[in-house]
Computed example of a mutant assay.
Amino acid sequence: MRRLGDLEAEIMDRLWRWCRPATVREIVDDINRTRPVAYTTVMTVADILHRKGLLRREKTGRAWLYEPRRSREEYTAGLMQDALGRTDNRQGALQRFVEHMSPEDVSALAAALRAAGYMCDDADGPGTPG
């Protein structure tokens, strides 16, 4: 999975925040509040995101309604899994990653591992997923 380009990220960010399908016109109007962008440029990038499988679209009248196929969290997890898959030393990569985490992120990671069944709340050590 490839990281999003700047305009791709702007489009996806809006759709993730809005939690509803939107037209290219809505996206363009929102982006134009902070910087100018052409309707055709956003339309082209939305079509590219659709062809990449990141957006689904449905025709309503003459316009397409776009919405994300995956949540922001699912997309981020995919990037992390892809990055981890690019190393021959997963343990080393994970160790370096954790070493640079804030205490809040370490707590969030521990909570995620517990929720996935990989850790117990007591001192028994790691669990098995399930």
Rank of each mutant, 00 (worst) to 15 (best):
M1W: 09
R3G: 12
G5C: 02
L7N: 03
L7Q: 01
L7M: 10
L7K: 06
E8I: 04
I11R: 04
D13K: 05
R14P: 00
W16Y: 05
R17I: 04
W18R: 03
T23G: 05
E26T: 08
E26Y: 02
I27R: 02
V28F: 05
I31Q: 07
I31H: 10
N32D: 11
N32P: 03
T34Y: 03
T34H: 05
R35P: 08
R35M: 07
R35D: 08
P36I: 00
A38K: 11
Y39D: 12
T40I: 08
T41Y: 01
V42W: 13
M43H: 13
T44F: 14
V45G: 01
D47A: 07
I48E: 11
G53C: 12
G53A: 08
G53D: 12
L54Q: 05
L55E: 07
R57Y: 05
K59A: 11
K59C: 06
G61V: 01
R62V: 05
W64Q: 14
W64Y: 14
L65W: 07
E67V: 06
R72A: 15
E74L: 03
E74N: 09
L79T: 04
A83F: 07
T87Q: 03
T87D: 00
D88F: 05
G92C: 11
A93Q: 02
A93T: 10
L94Y: 02
R96H: 13
V98H: 08
E99L: 10
E99K: 11
S102Q: 09
S107I: 09
S107L: 15
S107R: 12
A108M: 04
A108L: 06
A111P: 01
A112I: 01
A112Q: 01
R114L: 14
R114M: 14
A115Y: 14
A115H: 12
G117S: 07
G117Q: 02
M119D: 00
C120M: 13
D122S: 10
A123C: 08
A123R: 09
G125K: 01
G125F: 00
P126S: 13
P126M: 08
G127L: 14
G127Y: 03
G127K: 15
T128E: 11
P129L: 02
P129M: 01
